[in-house]
């Protein structure tokens, strides 16, 4: 079997390498396309999910302040009522005290 010179072999190998490179590039490109598709899919999915999530979050955000505001408003309203009660109670205490003093005064006067 005649030996093939190395140089000849190199010459023959060039088209093979080129073909391999082309196939690799083609595969790479294909992979890229698939990857893009996947990305798009993911994007689509993620764009849909965040949209829903945002909506929920948005709803949750709007509900929470409403509840907090409602609770806070209720607290303020009750506190105002209780403050008014405290103020009136001072007046009531004065009347009870004055009634007691008047009855004591009666006793003093009757003893005169």
């Amino acid at each position: 079997m005649p030996s093939i010179p190395v140089q000849t072999m190199a010459k023959k190998a060039k088209p093979i390498l080129l073909g391999t490179a082309l196939i690799t590039i083609a595969l790479a490109l294909s992979a890229c396309t698939n990857s893009n598709t996947a990305t798009n899919t993911t994007n689509n999915t993620s764009s849909a999910t965040p949209s829903t999530t945002h909506q929920i979050t948005s709803n949750a955000t709007s509900n929470t302040p409403t509840n907090t505001t409602s609770t806070s408003s209720s607290n303020t309203s009750i506190t105002n009522d209780l403050n008014a009660i405290d103020s009136l109670n001072t007046s009531l205490n004065n009347d009870v005290q004055s009634s007691q003093s008047a009855l004591n005064d009666q006793a003093t006067n009757l003893n005169e």
């Binding site: 009750i78 009522d81 004055s98 008047a102 009666q106 009757l110």
Partner: peptide, 26 residues
């Protein structure tokens, strides 16, 4: 002798009734 305690008692009832109205709201 009568009016001093009487009016203070009625005043206490008056204020007490206002307090009760407020308590009903609470």
């Amino acid at each position: 002798l009568l009016f001093m305690p009487k009016i203070h008692i009625l005043s206490a009832v008056d204020v007490g009734s206002q307090i009760i109205t407020k308590f009903s709201d609470v």
